[in-house]
Simulated assay, not measured.
Amino acid sequence: MPPKDVKLRCPYCRHAGVFHPSEQSLDAGWLEQRRRTDGIVENIQCGAGIRICPNPDCRGIILVHVEGGKLVSSLPSELIDFDATALPQAILSSIEEALKCHAAGAYKASALMIRRVLEEVCKDKGATGGNLKDRLSKLSTSIIIPSELLAAADELRILGNDAAHVEAQAYDDIGIDESGLAIDMAKEILKATYQYASLVERLKALKKVAR
């Protein structure tokens, strides 16, 4: 049987917490025998059941799969955490879709949604150029982005002119690592573009209240 309490980040409200079973939950448990690489056969206690988000404003229902006391997977899948503060709705929607695709193992789709996030940021801030790399370079003149980050980002295939085409070889080769790196880069750009300014304004407001 799976443990009663499971720790994870809610895919609905993004709060991390301890998820408890509901009173109506019926857990399923089973024992699996697996052979290790050294030939030793191990008995693995597995289980599945429904858990409820502890956030009273959410109470999302999650199906969890546990093996050996450790969470293996959940449905909906646990998402990479990110800060949604001060993000325009269109950009927020796009990055949420990118994270859902990544969690579902759809790494190509996730990378393309991250490309869309970056395109939307450039459009919102009026950064122009012949391609996405040029537009991001233009964006860096109005916000603080480490030059090393943009230089290293050139290695990401999603920034190429043809990265959005299904037939492109670069697109076909995108996997979990590049998808995850693209998300991390986008989070830093979003932070620099929208959230530093929001933090500054909040600090200024705090100073006014203190007076």
Rank of each mutant, 00 (worst) to 15 (best):
R115W: 04
A164I: 09
T141Q: 11
I145H: 07
L190S: 03
A106D: 09
G160N: 14
C122E: 07
P146T: 00
A170Q: 08
A109E: 03
H102G: 05
D177K: 00
A186K: 02
V117A: 09
A164Y: 07
Q169M: 13
Y107C: 06
L139P: 06
D124Y: 11
A98P: 02
I145C: 12
D172C: 05
A163R: 03
S147E: 12
L149P: 02
E167G: 08
L132S: 02
I145D: 09
D184P: 00
I189L: 08
R116P: 01
R116W: 00
E119L: 10
K187G: 05
G180V: 12
G160S: 15
L132H: 02
K100H: 05
S142Q: 15
R115F: 07
I183A: 10
A106E: 10
T141G: 08
A109F: 02
D173N: 14
V117F: 08
E178G: 09
I143G: 06
A186G: 07
A153R: 04
I145W: 04
L150N: 08
D172E: 12
T128G: 05
S179N: 01
S142W: 00
G130Y: 02
G160M: 00
A151Y: 01
I176Q: 11
K100P: 00
A127K: 08
I144H: 07
K133R: 13
M185H: 03
K133G: 03
E120P: 01
S110E: 04
E119M: 12
K125F: 13
K100Q: 10
I176S: 11
V166L: 15
I183L: 15
I174W: 04
A127R: 05
K100L: 07
L118I: 11
E148F: 02
N131E: 12
I145M: 13
A111I: 01
Q169T: 14
L99P: 01
T193Q: 02
D173Q: 14
V117Q: 06
L150S: 11
L132V: 02
A163W: 04
E148H: 01
L99H: 12
L156D: 10
L181Q: 09
D172G: 08
K108N: 06
E167H: 06
T141E: 14
G105F: 11
L139M: 11
T141P: 00
D124H: 13
L136V: 11
S140N: 01
E167Q: 12
L99C: 14
M113H: 05
L136R: 07
L112A: 14
K138Q: 13
L156P: 10
E188T: 14
A182P: 06
T128V: 15
L150G: 11
S140Y: 02
I174E: 03
L190H: 02
T141W: 00
A151Q: 13
A98G: 03
V166P: 08
C101R: 00
L132R: 03
K108Q: 12
A109M: 04
Q169S: 13
A192D: 04
S147F: 00
E167S: 14
I183S: 07
A163V: 08
A127W: 06
T141H: 10
D134V: 09
I183K: 01
C101T: 03
A104T: 07
N131D: 15
I114D: 01
P146M: 01
I158F: 07
K187R: 09
L99G: 09
H165P: 05
E148A: 15
G160Q: 12
K191M: 14
